[in-house]
Design a protein around this nucleic acid. Structure first.
Lengths: 355, 355
DNA sequence: ACATGGCACTCATTTCCGTTGAGTGCCATG
DNA sequence: CATGGCACTCAACGGAAATGAGTGCCATGT
């Protein structure tokens, strides 16, 4: 069923006011708005109907109204107006974004911190792989009498290394042979495809450096597995305490205890629609402890078969428009950074990817 | 001046009770203790004196007594009895310690999480270098037409790598030359010792691959700098909320806002004594916002010229004995892991160090 | 000289109750 | 069908009284 324009206007007004005051909104407050040309009585009648439709809620008989989860959902889907960042806001955000492209993980975790700071809410970033993660290239370096450095490159252009210390008499030649074998047999395999049979064949062909094989395989598997599961960075938990709904420590604790990397990585399961920006409102959330919190998340493209998400967690009463605008800003700039990075050019400090 | 045995006994009782109840302790409660053979009136007199000596405090006239910072200090230095972990406790701790030696950083951050969980308080870990951090060895790998992998090993056996993408026509030979030059000229230098003059000489000698030099140097400097400043991992902030002194959100927020990696790395400045285990009680702390919190920290040896610390942050009223016991457990086991690691032997998954 | 029981006093905390005021629902009116 | 008016509801505020844990000090006993 369709809402009348007047009901929409009133619902929007209620959400807008409630978002900034965190107090139930009364009919008088709405009637007092500049572009509201009805009396409080009329608004009361409309509000009664909106309540009956399940879009508003009344904490108790003689209190104002508060948007219900359904109300927020409708607001987000149909009524929310784009928030335009002010010049000042843009300036402070862009000031913050001046960070070096260091380790990929660190970059994401830094951006998470920026988002959290900018929104004054807990924020998270996720980097997840699309498709299979496999080893692409192995290199072995002789680093000392009993020291070897293994350098492993995986899909997604991620490079990891490990210092191996083993008392072992081998020549550069032996290492060359081993890495040739590794590159021939153990590339383009996901962690699951490392069978025992395969490994024993590799060990047999490995020559003098065969005793390195188990360590190398262990490492490779742990790198592949780590990259398979999405990498979540969550920061700024304590900013929730600034929100009036968590003035009660019990409430805050409950939410904060549920809010870990684990929970975050389960969030996408609750999504219905598709699209670059997603909202999970209150009870739509995965964990029941989060029934009064909402999540706004936004995708951005990393390239190299990877997919990033930045998100913000806050009370259901959250300034969705503003948060969305800020997330967009960051997502857009991250996207740009990665595009720049993809193009092999420009000898400055952000066009390379390291690990 | 020396305290009478009876005063000591009473002070200890007050700290012990207050630590577990978080309520001011009255004379009656003390008199009721099994090994207390004096009447409440006698204890009242003693308490009055202890108060006058500045070891106890009285929140208001008709309330019980609470240990002052000086009282805690005396308790820690003289009265505290070793807490023996129960079998159950040891079991649950040792269960938790079964973690793989993965990336060094990750290991520390995991241990931090374990400590925080075990003590139910915020915890941190620090790894800091003793002495200069310098580059030890450079290797260059040709990873594709326009891709090069730089592998850098520094003091402390830390290995880092970076994928460099530059459109550049060079041969394996050119790379070999460049790495020889790097190893000859840019090792055993701290970040400060990288002068412009030196760099231009290196660039001149670098041959065909000279355009890689700026990227390599940038990376090297950032790795050296990152290792110079101590690496702090802080987790479990929200566990503070479980403590009764932070039932008031305002208080909690104030502390949580000050409690960041920055503050933690400044803590050692406040230490007077030496020793493996250190206590910072309330106002002894660096930041005034932390005047009601205490820190217990414990050193452990990493080897390779590195030095580790694990620590716990909590209210001044904290079970110092229990926390110390648990920290000892973790510090000891970490120490063992690193000793094992130092000895180049045993082909299982914890004897190598990776990054 | 010192431990103890007794007692008056203090003061934070809790409980109760009346007041206030924001907000609603509904009805009569224009 | 919008509006003004009016009775009603109920959380929140505030002050007064009751409660009780704890102290300080004194008189007494050993």
């Amino acid at each position: 069923m369709e809402l009348s324009d007047r009901k929409k206007q009133i619902l929007r007004a209620i959400v807008d006011i409630y978002v900034s005051t965190a107090e139930p909104v009364g009919s008088k407050a709405i009637a007092a708005l500049p572009d509201m040309s009805f009396s409080s009585a009329t608004i009361r009648n409309e509000m009664a109907e909106l309540t009956q439709m399940g879009l508003l809620e009344q904490p108790h008989t003689s209190a104002g109204r508060v948007p219900s989860a359904a109300g927020y959902r409708l607001y987000i889907d149909e009524l929310m107006q784009d928030y335009r960042l002010s010049v000042d806001e843009t300036k402070s955000l862009s000031g913050a974004m001046e960070l070096k492209m260091q380790e990929f993980d660190k970059l994401l975790s830094q951006v998470g911190q920026l988002v959290s700071k900018a929104t004054n809410l807990p924020a998270y970033t996720v980097a997840s792989h699309q498709g299979d993660v496999t080893a692409k290239r192995y290199d072995l370096i002789m680093a000392g009498p009993d020291s070897f450095i293994l350098v492993l490159m995986t899909t997604g252009e991620v490079v990891k290394n490990k210092l191996i210390k083993l008392p072992l008499e081998v020549s550069e030649q032996d290492l060359k042979l081993l890495s040739a074998v590794l590159n021939a047999s153990l590339t383009e395999l996901t962690a699951e495809e490392f069978t025992n049979e395969l490994l024993s064949r590799v060990t047999r062909n490995a020559g003098a450096a065969a005793s390195l094989v188990p360590v190398i395989v262990d490492f490779t598997l742990s790198v592949l597995r780590e990259q398979e599961r999405s990498n979540v960075h969550l920061t700024g938990h304590m900013r929730l305490l600034g929100q009036p709904e968590y003035r009660d420590v019990e409430k805050a604790q409950e939410v904060l205890e549920t809010l870990d990397e684990e929970t975050i990585s389960n969030l996408p399961a609750a999504l219905h629609q598709q699209g670059p920006v997603q909202f999970l409102v209150g009870p739509e959330n995965v964990a029941k402890e989060l029934k009064d919190t909402s999540v706004v998340m936004m995708r951005f493209d990393i390239g190299e078969g990877m997919q990033g998400t930045i998100g913000v967690v806050g009370p259901t009463r959250m300034d969705y428009a503003k948060v969305t605008a800020k997330l967009s800003y960051f997502a857009e700039n991250l996207g740009k950074m990665f595009q720049k990075n993809a193009a092999p050019a420009l000898p400055d400090s952000i066009e390379t990817k390291e690990d």
